[in-house]
Simulated scan of single mutants.
Amino acid sequence: MKILLVHNYYQQPGGEDVVFRAEATLLRDAGHDVEEYTVSNMEIGQQGKAGVAARTVWNAAAARTLNRMVRSGQHDIVHFHNTFPLLSPAVYGAARAAGAATVQTLHNYRIVCASALLFRDGHVCESCLGRLPVPAVRHRCYRDSVGASATVAAMQVAHRVLGTYRRDVDAYVALTEFARDKFIQGGLPATRLHVKPNFIDPDPGAGPGGGGYALFVGRLTEEKGVQTLLDAWRRIGTALPLKVLGSGPLVGDVEQAAGSVPGVTYLGQRGREEVMALAARAECLIFPSRWYEGFPMTIVESLAVGLPVIASRIGAMEQLIQDGVNGMHFEPGNADDLVRAVQSFLAGDRPRMRNAARETFVKHYTSAENLRQLMYIYGQARKAGGATE
């Protein structure tokens, strides 16, 4: 199969970039003819605010380029990972007009939420879900800017009115059933919404555990539940030492806690190899996120090494983690309930949970299983687009 993968890289590398590269490798290793078309947000400074705003809504140049690529390459599938902000939804129709079936992976909620998080002012927000995104502009939901938020809202409304999202994308890939339900509420066609999680390759294998510490890995931001984490560890302390990895706006709070709360250590930003080594020896991962999340690679990496996950009971985490089986749940934003969950974990059958965590990965998140699911979705996209198998 001839496949064109399309991605708009962010200025700060993230999980979407990792998945884009991983799927490209997966498809090539399976014998498919894979080409890539990418742009980077590093180019934004060269274009000016007005130019970027216009291209966010409709980038005719990118659409023409993609149309030529597909016609020339005779691609069967064009798989989009991110089109925001430099490509715009105009590229969907361009690819389809050139004869390819189109697939869009929904890594975040941008298509229905200006912030992409469904989170505002410290709590989950669905004010724009299935409605005109006026609240997004009023609350400056994108980059704390009325103008920038209005641009995202204009993109969403324009392509809803034009029918782009319903007509020009043959298959959407939601990362969880929970996310699929939210996108349906937001107006995407249920018949074209498929669920396929992310994966890890190569398989790191089960870790030994026994390190005697809990682990937090992620952006140090409000929506990631960092304050909940620190508040809980002021009570847990050395009963289960905590290692914190990551960077972000709340780094000062974490550094202060590391200097004053017994058992808390801040290790800063570390490379993936070191993160995986720490995860392999940890007792559990703490995942206190206060927003719905997409599909956290940190959780999948933890399950891969057999690391149980203590996660907030919200959004994707409620489906990825089974309470008392491969981890524990606690109420999001509730430090007292996080303390309870950690204490229950310490008193429970931890070897059994480690085995269950590893079994979850083997059953759902290997490269072989992911390829099988991806091929099925490509087949459905080609049927929706009128192509033959």
Rank of each mutant, 00 (worst) to 15 (best):
Q319P: 00
A95F: 07
Y9C: 00
D144A: 14
A148N: 12
V78M: 07
G327R: 01
P351M: 06
G210K: 06
K243D: 11
V226R: 03
D17V: 04
Q380A: 14
G147C: 10
L188Q: 09
G51N: 01
G348T: 10
H32S: 08
R281P: 00
V57L: 06
V137Q: 05
E359A: 15
E283W: 07
Y172H: 07
G99N: 08
P296Q: 12
V342Q: 06
A114P: 03
S72K: 14
L129Y: 05
E177Y: 03
S344Q: 14
L371C: 11
I310S: 10
S145T: 04
P288T: 06
D337F: 00
P249E: 15
E301G: 03
P332W: 04
M297S: 07
A62S: 09
H107F: 10
V342R: 02
N82H: 14
H139E: 15
N8D: 06
Q380K: 15
P351A: 10
T38D: 07
A239V: 13
S127H: 03
F199P: 01
A148P: 04
A22Q: 14
L188M: 06
S344W: 03
M353L: 14
E293I: 12
N198A: 07
A316G: 02
Y172N: 07
G45S: 10
R64A: 13
L320G: 02
Q11Y: 02
L230R: 06
N67A: 14
A232N: 09
A356D: 11
K383A: 13
P189E: 11
A387S: 00
R71F: 01
V52A: 11
Q104R: 09
L129P: 09
E359L: 08
I286G: 00
G205M: 11
H159I: 15
N198D: 15
D349R: 12
Y378V: 12
R167V: 10
H79N: 03
H7Y: 00
T228K: 09
G271C: 10
R340K: 13
A148Y: 09
E35N: 10
A341D: 01
D203V: 00
K196P: 10
E126C: 00
R28I: 02
S88E: 12
L118Y: 04
L162Y: 05
G15S: 15
E389T: 13
G333Q: 06
G246H: 00
L162H: 05
V152S: 07
G45A: 06
V91G: 00
A257D: 04
G45E: 12
A148F: 11
Q227T: 08
N370L: 04
K49D: 11
G210E: 06
Y92N: 09
